[in-house]
């Protein structure tokens, strides 16, 4: 099966920084699979996910989305490809408005009629058991609630690949369990999922494959049972 997203020989450095955040990373992300990315703080997990999500342009190397070299594509092609992949920030950022509006936001950006977007957003919130938050303004959400809203906003947009950066940092145990089941359901429906996390329990619960990053390099990759030893 062809990879949905492919990083080839990717090196990345931040403007003004002298260090490489990533050093020669090769990675394949597939639809219908859950990939866990683990590694110490500063090892490059966020950087790698943002590169896969086309938010950063690699300093060196190529990022292919469904076979196309993203950064060599023209504007309309880039937009089309970008809409197939959604990245969720580790620190949730919500736009002005209610939680429901936030969950619908990705659909609104894609040009869905507002009523349909809100309808879908509501059903995604119900699926996660948080429909009660729908009418809360962004300033009235706890850290965990905001994180859930930002995850559900990505899920509602129905990308073909979902990139989650530390999605359980603020979630209670029950929500973690529900998130794990949601991710498995999405995978079974054919979505590709990447989870960068320090939550080994979540990683072992859901992942089909895992990679360990250290100092900007992929050190180990393989089945989660072997890679994610505590």
């Amino acid at each position: 099966m062809r990879a949905a997203i492919e990083l080839r020989g990717v090196w990345h450095t931040y403007p003004g920084s002298r260090r490489w955040a990533l050093e020669g990373v090769d990675l394949e992300i597939r639809e219908g699979r859950i990939l866990a990315v683990v590694g110490p703080n500063g090892s490059g997990k966020t950087t790698m996910l943002k590169l896969a999500g086309t938010l950063y342009r690699p300093t060196r190397g190529t990022v292919r989305l469904w076979g196309s070299d993203f950064w060599a594509s023209d504007g309309s092609q880039r937009l089309r490809l970008r809409r197939l992949v959604v990245y969720v920030h580790e620190k949730p950022v919500l736009v002005r408005g209610t939680a429901l509006h936030n969950v619908a936001y990705g659909l609104l950006l894609r040009g869905y009629p507002p009523e349909e977007a809100l309808e879908r957003a509501r059903s995604v919130m119900e699926r996660m058991g948080v429909a009660g938050l729908a009418s809360r303004e962004r300033g009235q959400l706890s850290a965990g609630e905001a994180q859930l809203v930002s995850i559900l906003r990505a899920v509602a947009a129905e990308p073909r690949v979902l990139l989650l950066d530390e999605p359980t940092a603020h979630l209670d145990l029950e929500k973690r369990r529900r998130l794990a089941s949601l991710l498995r359901e999405l995978r079974d429906r054919g979505m590709g999922v990447v989870v960068a996390t320090h939550d080994y329990l979540l990683a072992r619960r859901v992942a089909d494959e895992a990679v360990v990053l250290e100092e900007g390099r992929i050190r180990v990759r393989g089945p989660p049972g072997r890679v994610l030893e505590v």
């Binding site: 937009l79 959604v86 969720v88 920030h89």
Partner: peptide, 11 residues
């Protein structure tokens, strides 16, 4: 917000 919008598939 710019990065958020792009992450969600904004033009």
């Amino acid at each position: 917000y710019g990065e958020l919008a792009l992450a969600l598939g904004a033009a």
